[in-house]
Nucleic acid binder design. Structure first.
Length: 255
DNA sequence: ATGGTTGCAACGCAA
């Protein structure tokens, strides 16, 4: 069994104890992190090395930052799109046990009127092009992370109030569909066709207690991996801890 | 009700 997970930790400095607990409980082969908010010089390599895990990361101060924690050795690391210069550290690709792991932190977009929204759509367009090329090289491929897109109405607690808003606007949902059109499968939805489950709840307004959430963190897998897939799930437990990340981990299991 | 909470880092910005 191969277990692959993703989690937006919203500061690895603050959430390191939660991450170590998660690794202990789930023993994933790969854990992709987003929003580490750490420059590479400050990454807590030893905390993972001590428990026998490998790490690669692409970080920056204060914002963004992605990392891959892995039981097996990590090869062929890429931190940038080949044709798009982006100072924001949002992409980290690596190959683990022959599986291409593409860890992404998609721009939030702020609001549909903002420049950041255009940056988000542009970023997604480059991502789609990049994945298309990687799929030819790596038949076993997962794209996972914080997509900042809820694909369907079922993925939003109050779809009426979110219609047209950032995270649920039609252009974003179309960009998500374009990823599926590459042949990728939204594993959580494929395994749980009617389950209303969320991966992010705003810190404000008691959103978690009221379950006012969105499913914006995803694990997409290529067809050969989908054929091996056993489950896709969201672990809500860490969101209920003291001083939690606002996101919950998403977990995939493969034979 | 156009709010509210968190993290970073410096009292604003991003989410």
């Amino acid at each position: 069994m191969v277990t692959i997970a993703t989690w937006n930790v919203n500061s690895l400095r603050v959430r390191l104890p939660h991450v170590l607990d998660f690794l202990q409980v789930h023993q994933p082969d790969v854990l992709a992190l987003q929003e580490t908010k750490l420059p590479d010089a400050d990454f807590p390599i030893d905390a993972f090395k001590e428990i026998g895990l490998n790490v690669v990361f692409s970080g920056q101060r204060t914002y963004n930052g992605v990392a891959i924690i892995s039981r097996a050795k990590v090869n062929d690391v890429i931190t940038d799109f080949p044709d798009f210069v982006d100072p924001q550290r949002r992409l980290l690709m690596a190959v683990v046990q022959g599986i291409c792991i593409l860890n992404i932190y998609v721009p939030n977009g702020e609001s549909v009127e903002s420049e950041k929204y255009q940056y988000k759509l542009n970023w997604l367009s480059h991502l789609t092009h990049f994945i298309k090329k990687q799929l030819k090289k790596y038949p076993d491929l997962v794209v996972l992370g914080d997509f900042n897109i809820a694909p369907k109405e079922i993925d939003v607690r109050n779809p009426e109030s979110w219609e047209g808003k950032v995270l649920f606007s039609q252009p974003e949902r179309q960009a998500f569909q374009a990823l599926l059109d590459l042949g990728l499968v939204d594993l959580f939805r494929a395994k749980n066709p009617t389950e209303q489950a969320y991966s992010w709840w705003d810190y404000r307004m008691n959103a978690f207690k009221r379950n006012l959430g969105l499913r914006i963190d995803h694990i997409l897998c290529s067809q050969p991996l989908y054929a091996r897939s056993k489950s896709g799930s969201i672990d809500k437990a860490p969101r209920a801890l003291q001083r939690p990340s606002d996101h919950a981990p998403v977990i995939a299991q493969f034979a």
